[in-house]
Design a protein around this nucleic acid. Structure first.
Lengths: 79, 79, 79, 79
DNA sequence: TGCATATTACACACCC
DNA sequence: GGGTGTGTAATATGCA
């Protein structure tokens, strides 16, 4: 591998590492928000569930719910 | 739940969603870098392995340091 | 640390390691069952959800559901 | 879903539940060992650290081996 | 599309 | 008993 090639490779690696650091910082910020919410009496767990809920479409959620109910009725589990 | 409380809750949710979008954008940037590297003939798999190796090496050093401190504190040795 | 003490310590470590290996083997068996179920056309995801469901009491599930609905109505999210 | 299908589903669920119970029993045994060790004056935290260290050392060796093979295959070197 | 991996979420255990 | 940390489980992503 030529020196130039090595430099380019190094450049790629460092760019990735820089972005991963930024990503990590944002993750930490998100954690802080959950802590803040918790400090004001909100349940972090529920907030996370809502954020997730808003991501996936209503149709998809209903599909899963229906499959779940089908399985439960098949084994006689009352939910 | 009062309207004010609902507003604060909504604010938390939207802040989280905004940060998650930023995080997603960074992930996409990282993906682009790997594509670019691949376009220049580098193996993305190898680059990822190197990035990971550099990360775990750093973490391993920290872990060993912490383990040493744990041992020292366990035997009452002040370092 | 005396030799006897060292031997006892070693014994504890090895007993833990042996049990952790057994635990790992069981985890693998569980994974195999999910694969088998999947191979017969069942959704592993849903089965896991059901197993989890049977673990927690009905009351607890309802509580979480109600809290969730309270939060959603507070931010005007129709679920 | 036919009754037969429901029975098969139920069988999968019960097999998983049985194995999870076994796993739980082993976890409890491990906890007992730590209590016993503590009762003899050993630090559970340190023992856990040692067990973990022995585990990751082994894993790390394997990872390095795999990385080496990855590098070699990347440059077309047959080892 | 199925598999491997990486991230994320959760629950349990320990400590104060 | 409450908060923190750790270990495990689940999900989402990316590659073959």
């Amino acid at each position: 591998m030529s020196e130039v090639t090595g430099d380019r490779l190094k450049s790629f690696i460092e760019r990735v590492e820089r972005l991963e650091n930024e990503k990590k910082a944002i993750s930490d910020d998100i954690k802080d928000i959950y802590l803040e919410a918790k400090g004001q009496g909100f349940s972090a767990k529920i907030i996370k569930a809502i954020v997730k809920l808003r991501k996936v479409s209503k149709e998809k959620r209903q599909e899963e719910q229906e499959l779940m109910e089908l399985y439960c009725s098949a084994i006689g589990l009352d939910i």
